[in-house]
């Protein structure tokens, strides 16, 4: 049923399943391609562009491009690394990401990528937009200063009827993440935790818990983001 195909990443040969997304096929082969918006088995959105690779010489997002036989993927080239670093920097200046005051610090994917690419300072000027914090839900804070518009929460955090707790409001530069106040009133602890866990930054935080993990024991304190994928390399 699932047809096996051969492809290469940076010249190395791998095998994957035809039609699966490049990013997943790479991960199965122990090759880390960074993601911020992608979540395995959830409809991809391709919004953050951090997984940009070159496929047969053209730029594609690895989270939305289905694997084909004979694909030649470039991922760790100097050009692509710099583009990814630039995207991380852009996300840092676009929102208000003040790491020292963020509960997600140490477990944050965006920050983890900042560490992985050794971002010492963004090359772009800071926007310092004024954004609000929505504390209407009894279970979570929605910290709009930190949202990177990945749509993970919109796509994944839903009630039994499939209704999303989260949605985008406005368009363009006014775009913001918002939450359904009625639904959020009855959010369970489990769902609140899940929402916080899937958020790649500190935009969704549970109330009444915070800074639970000491510095040194957090996800990206000792090992760069992607180490788990890379350590599974065959």
């Amino acid at each position: 049923m699932s047809e096996k195909v051969k492809f290469t990443i940076d010249g190395k040969e791998f095998e994957g399943t035809k039609g699966q997304f490049i990013v997943d096929a790479a991960a199965e082969n122990g090759v880390y391609i960074p993601v911020l918006c992608h979540w395995k088995d959830v409809t991809p959105s391709g919004s953050c562009r951090i997984c940009s690779v070159k496929v047969n010489g053209r730029f594609m997002t690895a989270c939305t491009t289905p694997l084909e036989d004979g694909m030649e993927v470039e991922s760790e080239t100097e050009e692509i690394q710099d583009i990814r670093k630039a995207i991380v920097e852009m996300l840092f200046v676009e929102g208000n990401h003040f790491c020292p005051a963020c509960e997600k610090s140490g477990d944050c994917d965006l920050q983890g990528l900042g560490y992985r690419y050794q971002m010492m300072v963004p090359r772009f000027p800071y926007a310092f937009e004024r954004r609000e914090l929505d504390a209407a839900s009894p279970k979570i804070f929605l910290e709009k200063n930190r949202c990177i518009f990945c749509k993970r929460c919109i796509r994944m955090i839903k009630d039994e009827q499939g209704k999303s707790y989260f949605a985008f409001k406005y368009r363009g530069k006014d775009l913001e993440i918002s939450m359904d106040k009625e639904l959020a009133k009855n959010m369970s602890e489990e769902l609140a935790q899940e929402a916080m866990d899937i958020c790649p930054v500190g935009a969704i935080l549970r109330k009444e818990v915070g800074f639970a993990k000491p510095i040194g024991t957090r996800k990206y304190d000792k090992m760069p983001i992607g180490s788990d994928v890379e350590s599974s390399q065959k």
Binding site: N96, F98, P100, A101, V121, Y126, F128, E129, R131
Partner: peptide, 19 residues
């Protein structure tokens, strides 16, 4: 040399930026 988050991105005092 810019030393620390405040020198690099404004840091805690920059929480007033935007206001």
């Amino acid at each position: 040399i810019s030393l620390g988050e405040c020198a690099i991105m404004g840091g805690l005092p920059a929480l007033r930026n935007g206001i």
